[in-house]
């Protein structure tokens, strides 16, 4: 893999559970089981997977809301998990998060102006500069400056997400992690927000890590896609390539679930059962209990990530 602006190496996050029996080791929820990816500058990297597979945990760990159990996160080659206090502040400026639920991520008792002012003040900016910057960025995301005095509950869903995006961009970051930024919006507004994000990427030369459960959206928006299952990346490839020829059975089943024209002829694959509990993941390949192409080896040996065709990685015993 070539050097990326943001690299994650073998990231693991295990939540320890409470001790229930004195002599028994307390169990742990294995939310992330060795996630590695490398995002290059200027690209849009998609991360897809069903709910509970660790997408948001990945995002929260990268921005530092959660401490990884193991693994390294490199931003421009520097390990951010071992940063000092003032370096951390610098990193925070450079890597920002757009939240899924806008009504929850904007302080309900703050006006739009107050919400946008807080991060700038925390960075030690002067009052006049702040005002100018806020007006400028309101313009950038297409919001009227009359909205500055409003409270979040007085805004529409689309306006709220625009404020959310602005809130993430106001510190002028280089990497923006978007955690399902459009899934709580009306379909009519989803497209607007996606276009806005595209537009902003060009203008501000941003790098996106776009998290979603919607393969169609990710396909439209992203250059490369990683598919996650139970805290692991099972397939990683160029967006078009993944859409045209998915390799991993899980990816195939996900793509086959998209209604309408999908560009390839796949029978609708219906998986058996639910995703296994991260408390007690299966042996071997995590996907084998639900896989429709499982072999004897799958239940005992964990598959390794292999490059099947150029830049198309998959971890499956079939290849």
């Amino acid at each position: 893999m070539k050097r990326g602006i943001l690299e994650i190496h073998d990231l693991r996050k295990h939540y320890r559970l409470r001790r229930t029996r004195l002599l028994k080791k307390p169990g742990s929820i294995k939310a992330l089981n060795g996630v590695s990816l490398s995002i290059s500058k200027g690209e849009s990297f998609g991360l897809v997977g069903e709910s509970g597979c660790g997408k948001s945990t990945t995002a929260y760990t990268i921005v530092g809301l959660l401490k990884p159990t193991e693994g390294r996160i490199l931003f421009k080659g520097d390990d951010v998990t071992s940063l000092k206090r003032n370096q951390k502040r610098e990193f925070r400026k450079k890597v920002q998060l757009i939240f899924q639920d806008t009504s929850g991520s904007l302080n309900p008792r703050g006006t739009v102006e107050w919400i946008l002012r807080e991060p700038l003040r925390a960075m030690g900016m002067q009052k006049r500069e702040i005002k100018e910057l806020i007006l400028e960025s309101m313009n950038l995301v297409g919001l009227d400056k009359d909205l500055l005095g409003r409270f979040p509950h007085e805004l529409s869903g689309g306006q709220k997400q625009r404020v959310g995006i602005m809130n993430a961009l106001i510190l002028n970051p280089e990497v923006v992690i978007a955690d399902e930024p459009i899934s709580s919006l009306d379909v009519s507004i989803q497209a607007q927000i996606l276009n806005l994000m595209n537009d902003l990427q060009e203008r501000l030369s941003l790098t996106y890590l776009f998290i979603s459960h919607d393969l169609n959206v990710v396909h439209y928006f992203c250059d490369r896609i990683a598919v996650m299952y139970l805290g692991e990346i099972v397939e990683l490839s160029e967006s078009e390539e993944l859409y045209r020829s998915p390799l991993h059975p899980y990816t195939q089943s996900l793509l086959s679930a998209i209604p309408g024209e999908t560009g390839h002829k796949l029978e609708r694959i219906i998986l058996e059962g639910d995703a296994p509990s991260p408390l007690n993941p299966p042996t071997g390949c995590f996907f084998h209990p639900r896989c429709f192409r499982r072999m004897a080896i799958c239940s005992s040996v964990k598959p390794q990530m292999t490059e099947v065709t150029k830049d198309h990685f998959v971890s499956c015993h079939l290849y």
Binding site: Y60, L65, L97, F99, S105, P108
Partner: peptide
């Protein structure tokens, strides 16, 4: 919103 504030430093 608290997580957001934390990320913003």
């Amino acid at each position: 919103y608290v997580k957001n504030a934390k990320i913003k430093g």
